[in-house]
Simulated scan of single mutants.
Amino acid sequence: MGARLTGYASTGGLHPQEAKGLRIASSLLLDEEAPPKGEVVRTLNAKGFRTSRGSEWRTNVLMRTLLHPGMAGLDDDGNPIEGHEESVLTVDERNQLVAKYGPPADNEKEGAAPRPAYDYLLTNGLSGCGVCSCGMVGARVTGDGDPSYRCPPPRDGHASCGRIRMTADRLETAVGEQVVAELLRPGVREQLAQLQQDIKDEVSRLRLHVESAAKRFAELGDLYGRGLLVKAAFLAAQQATKQDLKESRVRLRLLEQVDGLDLGGVTDVVAWWNSAPQLSRRALVGLVAEVVYVLPSGHGPHDPHERINIVWRTAS
């Protein structure tokens, strides 16, 4: 078995200290006035950050790690890894690093350039299956197929139906058109400030909820240890708490992006949407919409608008 990828614990989930160091490095390298890579490495080592092997960072090791698709929760083909709880970097952050510093040498395949990862607009809770309400994931039907959204196939512990699929281009284009149309309605732009304040409040609540997870696990263990919970009830409660923590982390990461969105100087929403980076578009969708449900094809397979139902946010 090979060494684990720095930033992730061997039992799954993030390694908090390692992930923190990698995020610091990513932020420094993506800054407009980024210091030399060697200086970033010296900064990490001086702060006590180490690789998964406990070694000090070297420049080539740091760049190979940051450019690895697993940093963004992707497999080698650029598809989201199913069951992946939280990633060290967002897909957008990793794509920016690849664009700025080139693809990792380990990903280069003889005779063909590596396919760039697709940056899905509506994953991590922004889209849901219109049949079973489970979150949609990004995937390709085949290795060289078009990026698509799909409801995950049913499996133990996952109540998805696996019946709904839609290509990313059709879904994202239709959602973008409806989001822009919603923002052009009278009075909606004036509601954005209140929506952002609502999200800021939710971010604060979610951070506290995530930070208190260790206490909740400890309380469950204490109840079990004192014989107040039978084993089956303890394991079920523990699993439910893990799932809640996973979902809270995903939502927190999304809402943190939404919280930082600045539309104050935007006068032409259409032009802004057409030129904005995917991270900003995702934040805008998350600001105005709770979720985008993808419906069965039914009688309108040729019009993507017939296959989506957007649940819009309302200000408190």
Rank of each mutant, 00 (worst) to 15 (best):
R4M: 13
L5Y: 02
S10G: 09
G13I: 02
Q17I: 09
E18F: 03
K20W: 00
G21W: 00
S27L: 04
L30E: 07
A34C: 03
K37R: 14
V41A: 05
L44A: 06
L44T: 04
N45I: 01
A46L: 01
F49A: 06
F49D: 05
R50P: 04
T51D: 02
R53D: 11
G54Q: 04
E56V: 01
W57F: 14
R58G: 12
R58N: 09
V61N: 12
H68E: 11
P69T: 03
G70R: 12
A72V: 01
G73T: 00
G73N: 03
D75M: 04
G78K: 06
I81P: 02
E82T: 03
G83A: 07
H84M: 12
E85H: 12
S87C: 02
L89S: 08
E93I: 01
Q96I: 00
A99M: 08
A99E: 13
G102M: 02
N107V: 00
A113W: 07
R115A: 13
Y118V: 07
Y120F: 15
L121T: 06
T123R: 12
N124H: 13
G130W: 02
C132V: 09
T142P: 05
T142A: 13
G143W: 04
D156R: 15
G157L: 05
A159T: 09
R163Y: 01
I164P: 09
R165D: 02
T167Y: 07
T167C: 12
R170T: 10
L171R: 09
E172T: 06
G176Y: 07
E177M: 12
E177S: 11
V179Y: 05
L183W: 08
P186L: 10
G187Q: 10
A193H: 12
D198K: 11
L206A: 08
R207Y: 03
K215A: 15
E219P: 03
L220W: 00
L220T: 01
G225T: 01
G227N: 06
L228F: 11
L229E: 06
F234S: 04
A237V: 01
A240H: 10
K246S: 14
E247D: 15
E247I: 00
S248R: 04
L252G: 04
R253T: 14
G265Y: 06
D268V: 02
N274K: 14
P277K: 01
L279A: 15
R282S: 08
L284P: 05
G286D: 07
A289C: 13
V291L: 10
Y293E: 10
Y293H: 15
P301G: 11
R307C: 07
I310V: 13
V311H: 13
